[in-house]
Amino acid sequence: MANPINTFLLTDLLKGLWTTFKNQKPSLVVTEQYPRERPPVMERYRGAPRLNTHPETAETLCISCNLCALACPEQLIVVTSERNPETRRKDLTNFTYDTSRCMFCGLCEDACPVDALELTQDFEMATFTREGQIWDRQMLEEGPLPTEYRH
């Protein structure tokens, strides 16, 4: 800046312009064309909740211990169960998860002793109603329907 020749020749400004120009190469463009191309999210991503079922018998893995509901900071999980008189175990009747209040901290996932509740890589959870954000057991087990976009 101190050099008057540099000041007169606009060297400082041209240096910046050259830096801008260098980054215009098409191979350096990092924009992702969502939703045409979906970025892969990482393995540990905390997205839509899922209630896992046994892969062969399709029975729920949840043992209705209520630990996830106790761990949740927002108290948005409600686990309902009834005592099975034969096996003396609790059978899951319903499981509601209010995704509108969820902040995806992952504490419920950490609390689950049998890996039944899991936060998956799905992130498209928009609905048209507030009630649609409250997921019941069926929704949690089947997962959200994949969104289709028509252009």
Partner: peptide
């Protein structure tokens, strides 16, 4: 205006490290 695009491009790499480590980018 140019620095904001360049900075966000590099910040994306930092957020990817967070996402890969703990599953979330910002919070």
């Amino acid at each position: 205006i140019t620095p904001v695009f360049l900075c966000f491009r590099e910040r994306e790499e930092a957020l990817k490290i967070f996402e890969k480590y703990c599953g979330a980018r910002l919070t």
